[in-house]
């Protein structure tokens, strides 16, 4: 039996635990044993993005200690995966021991859809959904990890779902972590455009692989177009559709 260690990013842990549960349900259904380390906290991405590298290094060392022995680490958050895979080795450029640990861990970390399609070789996970789906290409998933076909393959294989084109699918939604707090005017224009493109796509739901974009887009829609639904891919694929507050 395959076994994966689930890395639940802090936004999911604190605000969107259903996404984590969906990932567990989905992996279990596919015959994968899921381990969860209770000592996990955050990958340190906020500190890296804000420029606080000594602080980020502390958090990264904790992460490496917690996940260091795992064969495969899977996360429903593209940007956190990018942090571990790409930024950890950069953080420890001058610390050979930690650099070795970071470099050894990097290839074992997967974004969820990447793990399902590239490692398990699964596309049809047995999920159902009645309606049209638009897929938002989250920046870190698309350009950070080069993951784009994997989620689309998974969506196309969902029974009853139709993947429809989304204009400017690969345009940033304006989240950018602290960017959304410090530059709210610009952020708002970007998320409004993303929402408009979603609405114009006529899709019943917008699906994505990034909790940050999820909070941003669904938070905007909740205020302005509360009837519009956003799903994390894990939720769509777990097939229950319940418990999602979009």
């Amino acid at each position: 039996m395959r076994r994966v260690s689930l890395f639940v990013p802090c936004l999911v842990d604190l605000f969107l635990p259903e996404i984590g549960e969906a990932a567990v349900a989905l992996l279990s259904r596919l015959g994968v044993e899921v381990v969860y380390h209770e000592a996990q906290t955050c990958c340190g991405q906020p500190a890296i993005n804000a420029g606080y590298l000594p602080q980020a290094r502390k958090v990264a060392r904790h992460f490496l200690k917690v996940f260091g022995e795992d064969e495969a680490i899977v996360s429903p958050a593209g940007s956190c995966v990018v942090t571990v895979k790409r930024h950890y080795p950069e953080l420890f450029a001058d610390e050979p021991d930690w650099l070795a640990r970071a470099e050894s861990l990097a290839p074992r970390v997967y974004e969820l859809s990447q793990y399902l399609v590239d490692v398990l070789g699964v596309e049809d996970v047995g999920a159902t959904f009645g309606g049209k789906i638009a897929y938002h290409e989250a920046c870190h998933v698309l350009r950070g990890l080069g993951v784009s076909e994997q989620p689309k393959k998974l969506i196309r294989a969902v029974a009853g779902a139709e993947l429809v084109p989304l204009n400017a699918a690969d345009a940033c939604c304006g989240f950018g972590g602290e960017f959304s707090l410090h530059y709210p005017d610009i952020s708002e224009v970007l998320v409004a455009e993303k929402a408009a493109n979603f609405i114009n796509s006529q899709a019943d739901a917008l699906v994505l692989c990034e909790p940050g974009c999820f909070l941003n887009i669904s938070g905007y829609l909740h205020r302005h177009h509360p009837e519009k639904k956003v799903f994390h891919l894990a939720t769509l694929l777990a097939g229950n559709g319940k418990g999602v507050r979009a």
Binding site: L16, P184, E188, H222, R245
Partner: peptide, 16 residues
């Protein structure tokens, strides 16, 4: 800055 144009789900009753 966030709340100018967006809502936010409340912190989950129970974390993951």
């Amino acid at each position: 800055g966030w709340f100018r144009s967006r809502d936010l789900p409340e912190m989950a009753e129970k974390t993951f």
